[in-house]
Design a protein around this nucleic acid. Structure first.
Lengths: 161, 161
DNA sequence: TACGACCCTTAAACTATCTTAAGAAATCAG
DNA sequence: CTGATTTCTTAAGATAGTTTAAGGGTCGTA
C-alpha cells in the first residue's frame, strides 16, 4: 500500500518491477480504478502531491513489486538543478491530465465493449496480468459483464471470419 | 467560440459576464460537457495550454458574454514578477484536476439522480441558466431522461412530505 | 490424489437508461 | 395577438448493464 485515502501524497513512485493501481472508494464502499502503472512507469496522486492536501485516492500493489520513491523535497531540489527534469515531470503531468479527460469522455460516450477494446490497446503490457475484477473496475462495469463483453467480441470475430 | 478542437489553447479566459461550456465531441459527433464557467471564473483547456499541443476540446459561449483573456506570454511574464499570482494559478490547476477526478469517479459510481443532485449543489449559480440539454450533456444522460429524473425527485419529495 | 479456495463464465431476471414519437409549454418574429 | 420555432415533458418499447445464483477451471496444499 503506497498511499491511503486521507494521507497526503508526499512522493512520486517509479515502478521498477510489479504493478500498481490507483483507485477511489465511493460512498457504498465500492472501489473504482482510475489508472495503473507497471514497469518503468510513474504513479502518484498528482492533485494531492502538488497541493499538499489529503488525497481522496489509494495506491496499492497488485503484485509483489519493487519501486523507487522520490520525495517532494528531493524532487524540488532536483528541479532547481536539472532543468530538463523539470520539463520531464511537467510533460508527465500534462499527459496524465489529458488521459484523465479522455477517460472521462470515453466513459460516457462509448459502450463497454468499445471501452474494453481501447483498454486493450492502451495497456498491452498489463492486460494479461490484471484480474477480471481489476479491469472491470477500470472500465466501470461488473466482472460478470466483462465476461459477456469478451464472449460477444469472440462471437463477432468468429462470426465474421 | 473561444477554442476549437485542433487549435492550441493560447490563453486563460476570465469570464466577466455570461457563461461558457467546455466540451468534447465523440466519434459519433455527440457533444459531452466537461465543465462550465460563469461570472468571475476562469476557463481554459489546461492540458493544451501548458503542453502547447492541439486541444481535443472546445470552449463556447452559452450566452452573450464578455471576457478578459490573458495570453501565455503575458501570464508567464506576470508569473515572474508576481509570485503570489503563480500560486493562485497553481492552486486553480490543482483544483481542476481534483474536480476532474471526482467527476470521473462519480460518473461510474452513482446513479443519474444522485449525480443530478450533486450537480445542483456544485453549480447553484448556473443551474437555472443552463438548458436541459446542457445539463444532461454534463451528466452523461439524455435530456429526456433528465426530465424523468426531475419528475422522480419531485414525486419522492411530495411523497415523503 | 483429492480437497478447498479462488476466479472466471453462464444464464435468468431485474433495473437504469436510451430511442422514438408525440403533445405541452415557452420563446420569438411579424 | 398569432403562428412558427424551439425546448420540455411524457410515455412506450428497446438495449446496456446489474444482480444473483450456479457450475466449471485452476492452483496450492494436505
Amino acid at each position: 500500500m503506497l498511499l491511503r485515502e486521507g494521507d497526503i501524497c508526499r512522493g512520486y513512485t517509479f515502478v521498477v518491477s510489479g504493478c500498481f493501481r490507483m483507485y477511489a472508494v465511493d460512498e457504498k464502499g465500492k472501489e473504482h480504478n482510475i489508472s495503473f502503472a507497471a514497469e518503468n512507469e510513474w504513479i502518484a496522486d498528482i492533485g494531492s502531491f502538488y497541493s499538499e492536501k489529503p488525497s481522496t485516492l489509494n495506491i496499492k500493489a497488485l503484485e509483489s513489486s519493487s519501486v523507487i520513491q522520490i520525495e517532494q523535497k528531493d524532487l524540488y531540489h532536483l528541479y532547481e538543478n536539472i532543468t530538463k527534469l523539470n520539463r520531464v515531470f511537467k510533460v508527465m503531468v500534462e499527459n496524465k491530465y489529458v488521459e484523465l479527460q479522455r477517460h472521462l469522455v470515453q466513459n460516457f460516450s462509448s459502450t463497454a465493449q468499445t471501452r474494453y477494446l481501447s483498454f486493450l490497446e492502451q495497456y498491452p503490457k498489463i492486460k494479461d496480468r490484471l484480474s477480471n475484477a481489476q479491469i472491470a473496475s477500470y472500465l466501470g462495469i461488473t466482472p460478470e459483464f466483462l465476461s459477456k463483453v469478451r464472449k460477444d467480441i469472440m462471437l463477432e470475430e468468429t462470426g465474421k471470419a
